[in-house]
Design a protein around this nucleic acid. Structure first.
Lengths: 120, 120
DNA sequence: AAGCGTTATGTTTTTACGCACATATCGGTT
DNA sequence: AACCGATATGTGCGTAAAAACATAACGCTT
């Protein structure tokens, strides 16, 4: 059986994000960053895993914390291992919710994808 | 009754597009452009309505036609009115399908938006 | 107090992109 | 054949985004 979507190489893609006062602060990037921070316990290592400059990662964290009542990431400098980063329980909740919405969107798109046939 | 989404100014936004071989060719911009072309019968006027340069609009049309088996826009140069632009029935079908998907996505997001509460 | 690894921040360089501008082309009308 | 309005296409400039580079600050350990 032929699957149109794959054969013709056309894909429906989408992106979800959260913004406040015209500023985007949560999306695919920050979502992944939070997960990496959770794994690594370090912002610089998390950035490295994502092929992201430390600076951009740091700015992401600032935006995240700025737009949330309670901090999502806690950064510590100095100390035994030079410092570190950890995510709060609030962050875990947001990651989960974002992933759920992402999944539902994906299902919706896949249901609907036969409209690409018009392009043939 | 308080509506969290409005009060805290945080919004969930999304975008859908179609791409082929890493190249985006259909999204909110082209979708609106097709509608404007249908109204105006002219690519330059359609571009004007969108505050878009003629060049960018023309490139959009090239991409649209390039990635579709059958043309979505027919451009004519010269003649009584200097030329003109019109959309094909295929374009109308795509516009419709895109708008439907857009609407369903919007509904899904609105259902799900209570997850913003975590940010308070 | 010296060392270490990480966070924190500034400066410079490069790249990408939009945008204005200029000009050519076409074909029906007059 | 001159005119007109729209399509067709190239070029240079300015700005903004991204990347690269440099350096400071911190606090525990030894």
């Amino acid at each position: 059986m032929k699957i149109d979507g794959a054969l013709m190489g056309k894909e429906i893609k989408f992106k979800i994000w959260i913004e406040e006062e015209e500023e985007k602060f949560y999306g695919p990037g920050p979502n992944q960053l939070l997960k990496e921070i959770q794994n690594e316990g370090s912002l610089s290592k998390a950035a490295g895993k994502m092929n992201l400059s430390y600076k951009k990662a740091w700015e992401m964290v600032q935006r995240l914390n700025h737009h949330s009542e309670k901090p999502l990431v806690i950064l510590k400098k100095g100390g035994q291992h030079g410092g570190g980063a950890e995510v709060t329980p609030h962050a875990l909740k947001i990651i989960e919710d974002y992933d759920i919405l992402q999944k539902k969107m994906k299902e919706l798109v896949e249901q609907q994808h036969e409209f690409l046939k018009v392009l043939n």
